[in-house]
């Protein structure tokens, strides 16, 4: 194992900002942030639909606000294989809906409440994610 591209300061700072969003949504609106839950409920239920929609719109505004304040270019490196993206998107959609959460819902809101269910979910998706990358690197 080699450690590369490690950005602990921006990672920790970004984590604190994410935590702040989680606190606001919880203390003020009484809800937990789980992006897969908010996005899929927006699609499937009428309950809180406008709130869920506004939250999702807010997510997209986030990087725009960041750019306004910092003037930084935001560069990402993402696959451009349609097949890979479509298969991954389907797996993430189906999996988070069946498993009841994703990196935010289980990984932050769930683990933060010391939920055993969320700890197990997080360990599971991390192990499978690690194995997937391992297999991809071999192939």
């Amino acid at each position: 194992m080699n450690i590369v591209n490690f950005t602990p300061i921006t990672a920790f700072a970004g984590g604190l900002i994410i935590g702040l969003a989680v606190i606001l949504f919880f203390v003020l609106n009484g809800r937990l942030i789980g992006i897969s839950g908010i996005a899929s409920n927006f699609l499937t239920t009428k309950k809180n639909r406008i709130d869920n929609f506004l939250f999702l719109v807010g997510l997209i505004i986030g990087p725009i606000v960041y750019k306004l304040f910092t003037q930084d270019e935001i560069n990402i490196s993402i696959s451009n294989s349609f097949l890979l993206l479509a298969v991954a998107g389907l797996l993430v959609g189906v999996g988070t809906r069946i498993g009841g959460g994703c990196t935010s819902g289980h990984g932050i809101s769930g683990i933060g409440r010391f939920s055993l269910r969320s700890i197990i979910a997080t360990v599971t998706f991390m192990i499978v994610g690690i194995l997937t990358v391992l297999i991809k690197n071999i192939i």
Binding site: G99, T103, V128
Partner: peptide, 10 residues
């Protein structure tokens, strides 16, 4: 569910 998600994530 979490396994399927982990696969897509990876």
């Amino acid at each position: 569910g979490s396994s399927l998600f982990g696969g897509g994530w990876g």
